[in-house]
């Protein structure tokens, strides 16, 4: 699930290859065929199947499944989660990248390692952490019950778990780029009389904007698609605490095939839009180098 790979430019990879390193034709063709059929079998086919299943009882049943109050509530909750977590993690990601690439402080390498923690921990564990903290039996459980604050089995818990899961995306995109760029342009801006704020908006942001958007995009995709951590803290209350991925699972378990796949089709469409935007961003940042 975790996708932190740097943008790659397929053209450049081949260009670098020496003639001596070129494999014989049959090797090349069989590798290409294997790669393509793998993608066809495990990515294109399931994606097609989602849409096929969603429309299996006709377009009307599809629309009906989508316009169910529970489905609409799941879409709303998913959107709310993304709207809260993505901006917060964007701010966090930029601050963390700034701190790591521009300052020297104790615990810097620890911070760099910890940023990756959500990638290395199973999402279920990430969810459980919040149950242990805020659940009825958790550390803050009594206090929360006393003050009638609901976090677990409610939207705040879902948002917290999603925040945790998605916080590396922006920082991970920015850190290598900002390290490579250095801070001379920023120093130049300051020496020309710019304030720190002005420098940030007119020099730093334009230089990192494509990587930043790329990180935000990945962060958003994950925020909307996260299942494991959210599943633990949600409580699966229909129409209240089901996000779209959870809604799909609930419907599927109840043999509501059209309902499940209609929800899945929205997630699939989101993935396709994400891919298109991602490719466009990569192309854009490549062409501006």
């Amino acid at each position: 699930m975790s996708t932190t790979a740097q943008p790659i430019n397929p053209g450049k990879l081949v260009e670098r290859q020496q003639l001596a390193l070129q494999d014989p034709d049959w090797v090349r063709w069989s590798l290409i065929v294997i790669a393509l059929s793998f993608i066809g079998l495990f990515i294109c086919l399931p994606l097609g199947l989602v849409i096929f299943k969603a429309l299996s009882k006709g377009i009307e049943a599809y629309w009906e499944a989508l316009s169910q109050p529970d489905t609409l509530a799941a879409i709303r909750l998913t959107a709310l989660t993304a709207v809260v977590t993505v901006p917060l993690n964007t701010v966090f990601g930029v601050s963390a990248a700034w701190a790591i690439t521009r300052f020297d402080f104790k615990g810097k390498s620890l911070l760099t390692t910890l940023i990756d923690l959500p990638f290395s921990v199973s999402p279920v564990i990430s969810g459980l952490i919040f149950v242990l903290l805020f659940g009825a039996e958790g550390w803050f459980g009594d206090w929360l019950i006393e003050h009638d604050v609901k976090i677990i089995f409610a939207a705040p818990g879902i948002i917290l778990a999603t925040l945790f899961i998605t916080f590396p995306f922006v920082a991970r995109q920015l850190i290598p780029l900002m390290q490579e760029m250095g801070n001379q342009e920023e120093e130049a801006a300051l020496s020309l009389g710019a304030s720190g704020w002005k420098m940030f908006w007119s020099v730093t942001i334009p230089n990192i904007k494509w990587a930043l958007l790329y990180g935000v995009l990945l962060c958003n995709a994950r925020a909307m698609g996260e299942f494991g951590a959210v599943s633990v803290v949600s409580g699966h209350i229909r129409g209240l605490t089901n996000t779209l991925p959870l809604h799909v699972e609930v419907n599927y378990n109840e043999y509501n095939i059209v309902g499940a796949f209609a929800g899945a089709s929205i997630l699939a469409a989101l993935a396709i839009v994400t891919l298109i935007l991602k490719t466009a961003l990569e192309w854009k940042s490549e062409s501006e180098r």
């Binding site: 001379q184 130049a188 020496s191 710019a194 020099v203 230089n207």
Partner: peptide
């Protein structure tokens, strides 16, 4: 005084022109 208020002009070794 901060660098921005010192009234100096600084030319960097690698120029540090704003690339955008």
């Amino acid at each position: 005084h901060d660098v921005s208020k010192r009234g100096i002009g600084f030319v960097f070794q690698h120029y540090a022109l704003f690339r955008h």
